[in-house]
Amino acid sequence: MSDLSELRQQTAGLVDAAASADAAARKLSIWQRLARNQSVVIGGAVMAVMLLVAIMAPFLGTMDPAEINPAWRNKVPGTELTDTAADGSQGWVYRMGTDTLGRDTYSRVIYGTRVSLIVGLSVAGLSIAIGLVVGLISGYVRWLDGIIMRVMDGLMAIPGILLAIALVSLSSAGLDTVILAITIPEVPRVVRLVRSIVLSIREEPYVEAAISVGTRLPLLLIRHVLPNTVAPLIVMGTYIVASAILVEAILSFLGVGIPPEIPTWGNIMAEGRLLFRIFPHNILFPGLFLAVTVLAVNMLGDGLRDTLDPRLEKRM
């Protein structure tokens, strides 16, 4: 499914190439152009709300998402807790019902926003960081290039989801393992992108000039190459966020995800799927949050791409 981020990236730019060309022609500043792009505005706004939810989770009328209550398991949304809650308060209402351990689904979904976003952002950050370093090395150090690219081709040939399933289920399940397992299949794609940028820039006259006057390699990379990678990597990063959130949900669905102690939309759904017919709320609510978020990230990605880098697909 990490293949998803690549595909999205490849296809997105084709869509509104015409529109973005118009925008570019108007020579507005980047921020003005972004503000004029509907996809960016809507996607960005939804993401901002989700980020707020994630940060403010404890203040949104939630209880401890791990607090179990066997006597109040499998309750439908709106059920009122007639016992005293764990924090001593009375009259707690299970807004989204409870799961099979009597945990409050509303609290789990809200806290789950946190974890799902952490997974998405960490995977994007990590894979870009690793991919950038490896890609730069590969693009500049010619004798290493062959080896690195063979390794990357090998990694790319393994379907991402299979690689992630194997990695997670064969090592101990934990937030860090899952993040790593989703990151690894993403890395080769970033490497290929960075490497292709490096290769194309090497040929530019101003870079050749810099080399000929004896600019040292690290300086060269920082001054001339890095700035050129920023726009495409931001766009690619957005798509990786979206695909990572989905992959996490799929891993959880297959039973090899983040431990159920830590709520994520994926594992709330995974635990809820057994009782889908009787208590659909444990699939529907987290599913809704998941779909809306991924939709927003995808829109943001499309918008950013049209605005920042309409020709990105040519580099892949």
Binding site: A242, F253, M269, G287, L290, A291, L295, N298, M299
Partner: peptide, 22 residues
């Protein structure tokens, strides 16, 4: 069509499966 195409990317396969079965 475009709305659907973004949406199709955003819903996990198993959720689609369960809804169709149901």
């Amino acid at each position: 069509v475009m709305g659907f195409s973004v949406f199709g990317f955003s819903v996990p396969v198993f959720v689609v499966g369960y809804i169709l079965i149901y």
